[in-house]
């Protein structure tokens, strides 16, 4: 298969993939993927269902441990995060993840936000309150939910729940943020709010987002990676991928010829 990769410099990238192969048992889901994900930029992963986007994304914070076998190198700030000596808990503090379905815990808003901090060893009430306040502002939830953080997180609307989950991830001050179709279960207004959040997060986060929404990819991302049948087919600046892609296959996908 033809591929065309116009990668940003590895030195400017927080995540660097080198010849990554991923297998579910004998079945190979990702073949020879190499890519650089530039620091403080948004990279969108697009491609048909089953092309391996989620599989690749989940390897970056080691969520595939025990599920899939990942070979090759995945460098996070120069260090191979696939190394078995890497502390996955610390890694996941630095590389946060948000999923498709909003999934707050069946607890109060406060407990949702305090739990990850407690688990990370932070028991300083004042500091926790300050951090919670800060992240709720970052995701613009504060004026919507008011001051009652003891209400159940499950009473929030779907869009608010997803922003709460984003806030929960941000509490740990991740350097990299992985998002797997974070807005595909949301209405357009909630989607727009999440997109606004992501654009302002770019200032201190490297963002990698899987999306089926091509308009979303072109609206918010700086770089776009097109996956096809387990391979990274094309990687380029988003403008280039959407206006003048190099491969015919990419052209067909971004013009909506296949799903």
């Amino acid at each position: 298969m033809d591929t065309y990769l116009n990668l940003p410099a590895a030195t400017d990238s927080d995540i660097v993939a080198k010849n990554v192969n991923i297998y579910y048992g004998k079945q190979q889901a990702i073949t020879n993927c190499s890519a650089n994900f530039p620091r403080h930029q948004i990279t969108a992963l697009i491609g048909p269902s089953g092309s391996g986007k989620s599989t690749f994304l989940r390897s970056i914070n080691r969520m595939n441990d025990g599920i899939a076998r990942v070979e090759g190198e995945l460098l996070y700030q120069g260090q191979n995060l696939l190394d078995s000596r890497v502390n996955v808990y610390n890694l996941r503090h630095q590389i946060g993840m948000l999923f498709q379905k909003p999934m707050p815990f069946a607890k109060s808003i406060y407990e949702n936000l305090a739990l990850p901090l407690h688990e990370a060893g932070n028991h300083n009430q004042a500091d926790i309150a300050k951090r919670i306040d800060h992240v709720l502002k970052m995701v613009d939830l504060q004026h919507e939910i008011g001051t009652d953080l003891n209400q159940s997180a499950l009473q929030l609307s779907g869009g608010q729940q997803q922003r709460l989950c984003l806030a929960r991830t941000l509490l740990l001050e991740p350097k990299v943020l992985l998002l797997d179709e974070p807005a595909s279960a949301l209405d357009p207004i909630s989607t727009a709010k999440i997109e606004t959040n992501l654009l302002s997060l770019k200032a201190h986060c490297t963002i990698i987002i899987v999306t089926h929404n091509l308009e979303q990819a072109s609206r918010i991302s700086d770089y776009t990676a097109f996956f096809y049948q387990g391979q990274l087919a094309e990687f380029d600046r988003t403008k280039k991928v959407f206006l003048n892609p190099t491969l015919a296959m990419t052209e067909r996908y971004v013009s909506g010829d296949f799903g």
């Binding site: 969520m63 808990y89 503090h93 946060g96 999934m103 688990e119 929960r168």
Partner: peptide, 23 residues
């Protein structure tokens, strides 16, 4: 309890055991 709850707990750097016992 949806599978995604476990996924969310793990992705927050919470251990599997604590995700089970606390969430």
């Amino acid at each position: 309890v949806p599978d995604e709850v476990m996924q969310s707990g793990l992705a927050l750097g919470i251990s599997k055991w604590h995700t089970i016992t606390k969430v």
